[in-house]
């Protein structure tokens, strides 16, 4: 009986090795381990055996059964792996075809620039203030030391709505409004970005609507060297550490002394080239020490308080920084233009 079991095992293992698909393998399993199979038969005949022989043959039968079961399992896994590999092969795709696009929008270039300027000045302790675009003559001009008959405020240069209301020509009125809000006894440290309007015919360098960012700091003991220091810090952070600044005297009715700030030319590093018209410098912004009349009108005593103000044009800065060659691009909103500045 023991010999018979051994023989069955050998026989089954050979058949398992020879099986070439899952079906053949299943036939081997049923053939040897099934209820009608030879091993079951052997076990059935165990009753005839002596008490000593019975456990020995029983154990052997179980060992044989286990050996065949394991061999079947191993072989089955081989077939399954093969089948899976076959299927995966069929599932292969062209990985070089384009992916399904995920559309992301992005900010307008002017917004990116204004945001960057805002964040730089916020870092220096400035708050961001806004004001109306339809402004009163008082705030747009008079509070900024431009009285009614001042030549710099020709009707021809502004879009008036009524005699007393106009489209603001700069964001400076927000400075006057903020000083008024702070009632002459509290320091003011603010920037005001926004849209402004001038009576210009739109062309490559003029736009009847454009953007301005102005800044104001009024406190006790504000010095002109502070203006230079703050603007220098801004210029280096915004345009690059290697850029130098210089201040030149200029004139604005609402500041005295007034300055214009140049930065060293990126292309020639100050040696002179066509970009900087051979001067080595590029004009970036205007500013100065707040005129005492402006302080007075806003309720600040110029004997106690002093301050500086500055203003810049994001369009001009964008044109310089990114080489945009026509100011109208900012307002045409050609998708191909807008998308160029979504990278950052």
């Amino acid at each position: 009986m023991q010999e018979k079991l051994q023989a069955l095992k050998e026989e089954a293992l050979v058949k398992i090795t020879e099986a070439d698909d899952l079906k053949a393998l299943e036939a081997v399993r049923v053939g040897y381990l099934g209820k009608k199979g030879p091993i079951t038969e052997v076990l059935r005949g165990m009753g005839k055996l002596s008490a000593e022989e019975r456990p020995v043959v029983g154990e052997l039968a179980n060992t044989v059964r286990a050996a065949i079961t394991e061999a079947l399992e191993v072989k089955k896994q081989v077939f399954e792996t093969e089948a899976l590999n076959e299927q995966l092969k069929k599932e292969a795709i062209d990985v070089t075809l384009p992916g399904r696009p995920v559309t992301l929008g992005g900010p307008h270039l002017l917004t990116s620039i204004v945001t960057e300027i805002e964040d730089l000045f916020i870092g220096m302790g400035f708050e961001v203030k806004e004001g109306p675009e339809v402004e009163t003559d008082y705030y747009n001009f008079e509070a900024l030391n431009l009285p009614k008959n001042h030549p710099a405020r020709d009707m021809q240069d502004s879009f008036y709505v009524t005699e007393e209301l106009l489209m603001r020509t700069h964001t400076s009125p927000v400075q006057a409004r903020t000083m008024g809000e702070y009632k002459g006894n509290k320091p003011v440290k603010m920037i005001c970005p926004g849209k402004v309007y001038r009576r210009d015919t739109d062309d490559a360098t003029h736009s009847h609507q454009f953007t301005q960012v102005e800044g104001l700091y009024v406190d006790k003991n504000v010095r002109m060297s502070d203006l230079k220091g703050v603007l220098n810090q801004f210029a280096k952070q915004f345009f690059g550490e290697e850029r130098e600044i210089r201040l030149r005297p200029s004139f604005f009715p609402f500041t005295e002394p007034s300055v214009e700030m140049d930065i060293s030319c990126k292309v020639c590093h100050g040696k002179g080239c066509s970009v900087c018209k051979q001067t080595g410098w590029i004009e970036i912004l205007g500013g100065g020490m707040v005129h005492p009349d402006v302080l007075k009108m806003a309720g600040y005593d110029p004997e106690i308080y002093s301050g500086f103000a500055f203003g810049m044009g994001p369009e001009r800065i964008a044109m310089l920084k990114y080489g945009v060659d026509d100011i109208r691009h900012f307002y045409t909103n050609d998708q191909r233009f807008l998308a160029q500045y979504h990278k950052a």
Partner: peptide, 20 residues
């Protein structure tokens, strides 16, 4: 000469700049 002015930062109080 504006070139001979120093670069200083304001000595006034501290301000916390932030967006409204």
């Amino acid at each position: 000469g504006y070139d001979y002015l120093d670069y200083t930062l304001p000595e006034g109080g501290q301000f916390a700049g932030k967006l409204s």
